[in-house]
Design a protein around this nucleic acid. Structure first.
Lengths: 339, 339
DNA sequence: ATGAAAGCGCTAACAG
DNA sequence: CTGTTAGCGCTTTCAT
């Protein structure tokens, strides 16, 4: 059952364990002949280094945790995908952790009673407050992701949500839209994500000389396409009158598209719609979605760099960095208005 | 930097390591007083058991790998989500592995040069042949998932694709559809998944006294909504005339919906459309998708049971099991045809 | 450049 | 019910 060990290889090759270990880890100072001989023994035995033993000896796990609410949410699925791929560039592997989007889930994650499983963690919280996160001095370094008001003491990477919201709203204004609504924030307890996006939306309107009207905002019971569809349906019934909608995320945009379709409102002719996250979905809806496109690759890579600096011992003040984003323009909100 | 060890706790509590270990692992035969005393020492020191050391000592990793093409594909994202949650019931954690849907990716996975990382693997291959998989005697037990023609020697869990395809096609026939097409299989090298679904589709037609016409099938360049949309667009231009479409999966169904919308063909009035996988998406498309709904929970749970039996030493012939499915009926293909 | 031996932190016989 | 001790398989000084 159990595979061959380093010892077995050493005996077979007639050398010490140390030498075999050197070969396995590509230690430079090994003679070619020696290397060849050891390699043959390795192949013959089908030897595979035991990672667990290596970890115990080195104290380095080679794993980072990537934690967020739910991997079945498209944005997180794509983040997970990017993380799995990119982590390899750092010789790391990813351990996914879901918090189920609950406070308890997030607390359990931070408090998790097992040590030594990962060297560090990338964590996108949605419920815990900055101060609670900061206070919990975890065993391992953590880099925060997303639109939280991150504690000053911790590293944090996000895209500039206010700027992005301003840009996408300006895009709508530039294409001639005037009655621009916002859809998808929480009915109660506005999340920081929604807050920042609404601020940018309002700033763009103000810059163009318009005043944001609270009645142009449609909140949703949950961050979910179906709930968004019913909220928009109801708003329309109550006379909500818009010629463009900035949605909090792609899922909200899908729900909005649906509600508009049902009422026979044409997109983009009658109403333009924008999403957020530029998930793969946004290319296949009908019409396809103009969406804020975060550079997830850059975001993850930078977060990983910060994290590994902490793993390596950096213990200074928190770094707060901005990852790039762009506006992906598609059919639901083209640059030039068509009628 | 390094946290307290079992030894430290033992000294502080004035007992042996064994006793502390017993308390930590909830070993039943420990006096309440002892337990209390040890627990206090644990709390005071903030002791966390080192999982890596435990693994090395026990030889059990507590991890299973769940491997498939790409977690950003909705079905796999949902499988990953279910796996993360359900694995806890077995005291296991999940390590996600992506193969990028390539033969090399799948081979690398099976051959992965590190041992001891996981106790077993759940693997949904899409490129490797059954015989190649069977020949590669891996270090760890593997249970196969999905529509592959699994080798007799290996465990395998899937839903009955032929039956499901038959049912959903029959559903369309029952609602009065007569010219039923199939969309989304590969243009070359038909996958086993497509093959089984097409067989069921044809069986249902035959049972109703219709002959399947190869011209009713529309292949797509890749398993992707955008490619499906263009394939369907082209088919329509070439006179493809259907009143219902069975799609290979939800993504193909989204692409089909899109192409039909563009041509002004109403769904479901003119053409009914069905998906496959019942991903969260299917509830939010417009119209929402009637779709084959695999019981992913049951599928995963059964696969996990089989895997753990192998981990525990079972070494018999392969078990081939069927997980339940149902047809989730939504707007795109209602039970009664409306005009 | 290679060998010998001492851990890494925990578990599990085996005693007591 | 609790203590002692020998591993688990690898890395890593420290010699040589």
């Amino acid at each position: 059952m159990r595979g061959p060990r380093l010892q077995d290889v050493a005996e077979r090759a007639g050398v010490s364990m140390k030498t075999v270990s050197n070969v396995v880890r590509d230690y430079p100072h090994v003679s070619a002949a020696m290397r060849e001989r050891v390699q043959r023994a390795i192949d013959e035995l089908g030897y595979r280094p035991n990672v667990v033993a290596r970890r115990l000896a080195t104290g380095r796990t080679g794993f980072v945790a990537v934690a967020f609410a739910d991997v079945a949410i498209p944005y997180f699925a794509e983040l997970a995908h990017v993380a799995s791929r990119r982590a390899q560039d750092f010789d790391y592997r990813v351990l996914l952790e879901e918090t189920d989007d609950t406070l308890e889930g997030e607390r359990a994650l931070i408090a998790s009673s097992e040590a030594g499983l990962v060297d560090g963690m990338l964590f996108q919280p949605s419920k815990m407050s900055a101060s609670e996160i900061a206070q919990h001095r975890s065993q391992i370094p953590i880099v925060l992701l997303g639109e939280i008001p991150a504690p000053l003491t911790m590293d944090h990477v996000m895209i500039d949500n206010v700027a992005a919201a301003r840009e996408i709203t300006t895009h709508l204004l530039d294409s001639g839209r005037r009655r621009i609504g916002f859809v998808g924030h929480e009915t109660t307890a506005l999340s920081e994500t929604s807050r920042q996006r609404i601020i940018g939306y309002q700033e763009a309107l103000a810059a163009a000389g318009f005043r944001a009207d609270p009645r142009m905002l449609v909140a949703t019971a949950s961050i979910d396409a179906a709930d968004t569809a019913s909220a928009v349906r109801q708003a329309l019934d109550e006379g909500w009158d818009v010629d463009a909608v900035v949605c909090r995320d792609d899922l909200a945009a899908m729900g909005t598209l649906r509600a508009l379709h049902e009422r026979g409102i044409r997109v983009p002719e009658d109403v333009a719609v924008t999403g957020w996250d530029d998930t793969r979905l946004s290319a296949v809806t009908f019409p396809s979605l103009t969406s804020v496109s975060p550079d997830v690759d850059a975001l993850f890579t930078r977060a990983m760099e910060l994290l590994l600096e902490r793993v390596a011992g950096y213990d200074g003040v928190g770094r707060h960095e901005i990852a790039p984003h762009r506006i992906a323009i598609r059919e639901s909100a083209p640059s030039v208005r068509t009628t």
